[in-house]
Simulated assay, not measured.
Amino acid sequence: MTLGDDIAAGIHQRAEALGFGKRRSTVFWSWWCGATLAIAWSAEAILSVVLGQTPDRGFVMAALGIIVSAIGWALTARTRFSSKPPKPATDAERLEQGIPLYPRIVAASIILTAALVVVLALINPGGTTREVIPFLGLVAAAGLSLTGGLARSGWLMTNSSALYPRWLERRGQLAPSSTP
């Protein structure tokens, strides 16, 4: 019997909850990618203003990030507000194995972002001059925004077993729990 057969037979209990977590994560990333652009370029624009440089490029790119984020949000609006239960995860065992890796991936991402900023500052001929600092802020903000997104996805997958029954309860598809 394959995992797909197990799920069809209802043997894998977390498959539905993990499917819910995957759907929530996909909906989240649909707008978060654009938000990451907006955050990173806003950091570049703010640092440019603080250092007396022209912030035009940062503001234009931040606006583009906001537009991309809005488009991503709109494209997933139907899924976001759907009352239809998500499809059970056909890769539930793989997802369960990956859940404990999220904290390590987030920690590694923070370390790699910091290392990248330091290396860019060291190898750049200008070092940390006023012209380079906005770019370093852009790199740091982009890396940390993506890391935040990874942390959110990890949280959704880790807590999918608790989130899914509450989602069903709010839609009247599950009897209210008797525990406080």
Rank of each mutant, 00 (worst) to 15 (best):
T2D: 14
L3A: 13
D6L: 03
A8Y: 09
R14S: 09
A17P: 00
G19M: 02
G21H: 01
K22I: 02
R23A: 02
R23T: 00
T26L: 14
V27K: 00
V27Y: 03
V27D: 00
W29L: 06
W31K: 08
G34I: 01
T36L: 02
A38M: 02
I39K: 04
S42Q: 02
A43C: 09
E44H: 05
A45Q: 01
I46K: 06
I46N: 06
I46P: 06
L47P: 07
L51C: 09
L51N: 12
G52F: 08
P55N: 09
P55F: 08
F59T: 04
V60I: 14
V68M: 07
V68T: 14
A70K: 05
T76Y: 12
T76G: 05
R78M: 07
R78G: 09
T79S: 15
S83G: 14
K84M: 12
A89N: 09
L95G: 01
E96P: 01
E96H: 06
Q97I: 05
I99V: 15
P100H: 05
Y102V: 13
R104M: 08
A108Q: 13
I110M: 12
L112N: 11
V117C: 05
V117L: 07
V117G: 06
V119Q: 06
L120V: 10
A121F: 13
A121Q: 14
A121V: 08
I123P: 15
N124L: 12
G127N: 11
R130Y: 07
V132E: 15
I133Q: 13
P134T: 05
P134D: 15
P134C: 11
L136Y: 09
L138H: 13
L138C: 07
A140H: 12
A142K: 10
L146N: 15
L146D: 08
T147S: 11
G149V: 02
G149N: 00
L150I: 04
R152L: 03
S153L: 00
S153Q: 02
W155G: 05
W155T: 01
L156Q: 04
T158S: 02
T158W: 06
S161E: 01
P165R: 01
R171N: 14
G172K: 11
A175F: 04
A175H: 07
S177C: 00
S178R: 15
